[in-house]
Simulated assay, not measured.
Amino acid sequence: MRFKSYWRTTVVAAIFLHFFVCLGLALALPLLDFEGAPIAAQEMEVVDLSEGDDGNADTEKPEPPEVKPPAPEPPAPEKPEPEPEELVLPVEMSPTEAAELDETVAEMQKQEEEAKKRGEDGKDVRPPAPPNQEVGTIISSGMTPDTRGTDFRGTVGVLVDVDAQGKIVGVFLSRKSGRFVVDQIVLNALKTFKFEPALDMNGNPMKTKRLINFPFDGSGPHPFDDDENKRMRAKRELFLRERQQQGNAPAN
């Protein structure tokens, strides 16, 4: 059984239907109000807030308790600064005095070299003491210079004048290193030295000279005590012991 189709009529009807629907929407849409009346914006008042204020005027913060500053500590008593030991350096000398001093130094160095040698009789050859000196100056304490930071290798000789109180009153570099820094290290080391003054024939302290040699061999500072110092210390003990025995001896 066959049915008759009206497809042409259906298509034309659909076209007209869509046309009228679109035309109705085009006429109705402009009449519709989707947005409505705009809400008027209110102006905001700007308020400056102080630091630490959170904007709540009703809540008042309690004032912090008043902190009393601590009582000032009493000033510590000022300690008197120790007076630096003065190291008296030699002043400029006349050519005649300088020549005499050089001769004295050369003679003392020569006597020291001879003292290290032994004579044929087996006795030590020692330099003669000054006319009224029985025991020379003894170095009681002092640290040698720190020679580890220097590239100089050799010996620096210093001739010091020691008074009757054991203080240095004059310094003369008898054997210089040729370098100002090295010589200054030796002079600074002498500031720590303390001496026992020389004794005359009666056992009284006297002023004298002492030749000190500082070897620069790359070693660190250590207490100074050379062979001459040991010999002088032994001689002083013997000299004082003999004088004590003479004092205790009954008078004839």
Rank of each mutant, 00 (worst) to 15 (best):
D121Q: 07
L173G: 00
E113M: 13
V21M: 10
G52Y: 05
L173R: 00
T147I: 05
L190M: 11
D163C: 04
L190Y: 06
R236C: 12
E237L: 10
H18S: 15
G142P: 06
V169R: 11
P128A: 02
V162E: 10
V12C: 07
E43F: 07
K230M: 14
A37M: 09
F20R: 03
E196F: 10
N204C: 02
M108A: 15
M232R: 12
E51V: 09
R241L: 08
Q133E: 15
E100Q: 12
N188S: 02
V12K: 15
D183A: 02
A71F: 02
A14T: 12
A14M: 13
E97G: 00
R148G: 02
M201T: 08
P197H: 06
E107W: 14
P80C: 05
G149E: 13
D54F: 06
I168E: 02
V156N: 07
M232C: 12
K235E: 15
P64L: 06
Q245L: 11
D225K: 13
R233V: 05
E92L: 04
E237I: 01
Q111H: 12
K176C: 00
D151N: 14
Q165H: 11
E86N: 12
E85S: 00
V182E: 08
N248G: 03
N56Y: 11
K207D: 03
L17H: 09
V160A: 13
K176G: 00
E134L: 04
G119K: 09
P95G: 05
G218E: 01
P131K: 11
F34N: 01
G247L: 15
T144Y: 10
F216S: 03
V171K: 02
C22V: 12
P250W: 13
V67K: 11
S140W: 03
Q133M: 13
Q245F: 09
E66N: 00
E237D: 12
F19G: 14
F19M: 12
V21P: 02
L49R: 04
S5D: 15
A13S: 15
S219G: 03
D217W: 05
F20C: 05
E228G: 13
A198N: 04
V125R: 11
A98V: 01
E66P: 01
K167N: 10
M201Q: 13
K61F: 07
K176N: 00
K117D: 10
P82W: 10
E78Q: 07
N204T: 05
F34H: 06
S94N: 06
P65V: 08
E134C: 00
A164G: 03
R241S: 14
Q184F: 08
P205E: 03
E92G: 08
H222T: 01
V125L: 15
T10Q: 14
